[in-house]
């Protein structure tokens, strides 16, 4: 059974169709990256999966359970299983680093505070921010904030982690530290769905790569195929343009 199964997904912003019949199946422990030009629907797909934009048509199933986005309980159950790291981090500005990581597990998941704190400290150590526990988001660099966001997502103990262009808001010096963190997750056998423009990184960590354009998955395959021998003309044009730069 696929860990994340998406069938015929359609989503619209007002009347503009941004996802136009997405089919995507991801196995447990698999790392799938979405690439494609801006506006192709990559980030929207993550927003739909996490329930921030309800789909107009199609289904999303998590571990065999189809999510009913109109039903709060179904949505809550699905959100218990996944976590998303946003492009702009979205750390809570009124909380320090440690509280940002702990607030949902303690307040929402009702887990033991001491256990959560120990886990949060360990995660922040793991992402190299063990000395920033009492700092506030605006005291951190973009790369540090993004790593806190990753630690916050991981502390929720998700089955699936969605990463939305986690390096696009960072300057080149900070990109490396975030990518190293994601590589650590990949090594931990977590199911990851990654939206990224970092082609080198995508090629290195992904089991499969999906090329999106016009709200559709135009081509999907192993990184060697997508970057080495793309089948579709649009994929070829995109890859040659990206790799040419």
């Amino acid at each position: 059974m696929a860990h994340l199964d998406i069938r015929g997904l359609v989503a619209r912003y007002n009347n503009a169709t941004v996802l136009d019949g997405i089919d995507l199946s991801i196995e447990r422990g698999e790392i799938v990256s979405l690439i494609g030009p801006s506006g192709s629907g990559k980030s929207t797909l993550l927003r739909v999966i996490s329930g921030l934009l309800p789909p107009r048509e199609g289904t999303v199933s998590l571990a065999g359970e189809t999510i009913n986005y109109a039903d709060r309980r179904s949505l809550r159950r699905s959100r218990d299983k996944l976590a998303i790291v946003f492009q702009q981090y979205n750390l809570f500005g009124n909380m320090n680093v440690l509280r940002n990581v702990m607030v949902a597990p303690v307040t929402i998941q009702k887990r033991d505070k001491k256990t959560v704190e120990a886990e949060a400290r360990a995660l922040l150590d793991k992402v190299g921010l063990g000395d920033k526990l009492t700092s506030y988001p605006d005291e951190l660099s973009g790369g540090q904030q993004q790593r806190v966001a990753i630690a916050r997502a991981l502390c929720l103990k998700p089955d699936i982690l969605l990463l939305d262009e986690v390096t696009s808001a960072l300057d080149p010096e900070r990109v490396g530290e975030v990518l190293d963190t994601v590589k650590m997750l990949a090594a931990d056998n977590m199911t990851l769905l990654i939206v990224s423009h970092e082609m080198g990184f995508v090629r290195e960590v992904s089991h499969r790569v999906a090329f999106m354009a016009d709200g559709k998955i135009q081509e999907m395959g192993p990184p060697a195929q997508i970057f080495g021998a793309p089948q579709q003309p649009r994929t070829q044009a995109f890859v040659s343009r990206i790799l040419g730069h």
Partner: peptide
């Protein structure tokens, strides 16, 4: 975006 972050973490 702050409210969206809370929503996806299942905040009521």
């Amino acid at each position: 975006s702050q409210m969206e972050a809370a929503a996806v973490m299942n905040f009521s």
